[in-house]
Design a protein around this nucleic acid. Structure first.
Lengths: 203, 203
DNA sequence: TGTACATCAGTGAACGCGCGTTCACTGATGTAC
DNA sequence: TGTACATCAGTGAACGCGCGTTCACTGATGTAC
């Protein structure tokens, strides 16, 4: 048994380990259950150590929000590229919902304004703009000939709204009762809502 | 100057005063900024006093969630009754959005699962069912002849989703940047999204 | 290849704070007779 | 109308806790020569 001190002392990748621990903690307990000390504890490190990698608690959350927007943008982009000729709106909404389900912690932090200071971290908002831009571009490609620019933008925000509303209600457990009353599951209900919206769009 | 002790000692309506103080605190600082001690302080009362009116911190929040659902149900009902023959879906969505704007604190608590223990407070979920039921009934009245029951329910959840998504994004400040890029205000953008959705429904 | 030294990434202890909740208590109020 | 007494709704002090953050420090690492 080689002494582990070498590898342990200079952790090697404490920064990533802290981010991982934060995601696990938030997934399990919610944003409120997250603390810098607990994150340090889970990474096997003293309370002082995280401050070598993040200015403070809010800075860690801001990094997570930014990564979240980048991940979301990537997943939306992938959904668009699967059907390049005419983007499938329900497919796009499903991609948003899947993101919210698989990356609960990111999703929570991204849309909780109090979690980090927006003005102190403009890079987060810019990553958000890019993610929303994917939806906008996809719709312009699909419906650009039928609508003027302003209508297109409103349509894009409407799509965002449906996706975000569904994902939020699903994640917050608000679909649990409603889906049971309808004899289905929360996830299936979310999919049906996306489908119903697609039909309204003539898709 | 009469001694204020009499009126002050037995507060008279401490329970309501605590609820009021909680709403103000959450509106100003968010749910995270709320504490039982601070609420007591704002009501001019010692930390022990709130426990004569609420079992604990979570119980106070549960009461606020329940009141929120009742208020929401009432406002939706009013919106329906304004156009009794054929409910106006954008009008319904606007009522939801207005509720979220005017009762920010209620709205935050209602949809934050960690704020209170749902299983300990089933009356909250029941109040939620009734509020959603208003939307369901209104749509059944409007579109009942064109769709079967299952389609109607899906449509109702879609309307809920649009309303909730718009209200959430608006309240969380996510429309601030997007509306600026579109040369309008967040509130106006929300109204346009509701309008665009209504047009898709042929309203 | 060896050594001096700057820098990096941790330790461990401590700070002051506000929190939820509980203790034993007491003044105010309402009611039965 | 007066009084005894139960109950209600507060007080004030204290508990133990976990938090974010800062202190001075030290062992590990990388680099210049």
């Amino acid at each position: 048994m080689a002494p582990p001190s070498k590898a342990a002392y200079h952790h090697g990748d404490l920064r990533d380990a802290l981010i991982e621990a934060t995601l696990e903690l938030i997934t399990a307990q919610g944003v409120d259950g997250f603390s810098l000390r607990e994150v340090g504890r889970q990474a096997g490190v003293t309370p002082r150590a995280p401050y070598h990698h993040f200015e403070n608690r809010a800075a860690l959350l801001a990094v997570i929000a930014q990564r979240g927007y980048e991940l979301l943008g990537t997943e939306l982009q992938r959904a668009v590229q699967e059907t390049p000729a005419k983007p499938n709106v329900p497919r796009l909404i499903q991609a948003y919902i899947h993101f919210a389900r698989r990356h609960t912690a990111h999703f929570q932090v991204m849309f909780r304004p109090a979690a980090y200071d927006k003005s102190a971290h403009p890079e987060v908002a810019e990553a958000g703009d890019r993610a929303v831009g994917v939806v906008l571009d996809a719709l312009a490609a699909a419906f650009g000939t039928q609508h003027d620019k302003r209508e297109l933008q409103e349509l894009a925000v409407l799509v965002w709204t449906v996706a975000h509303g569904t994902a939020s209600l699903l994640n917050d457990g608000a679909f649990d009762r409603r889906s049971a009353l309808m004899g289905t599951t929360p996830t299936e209900l979310a999919a049906r809502v996306a489908g119903a919206f697609g039909r309204l769009l003539g898709q």
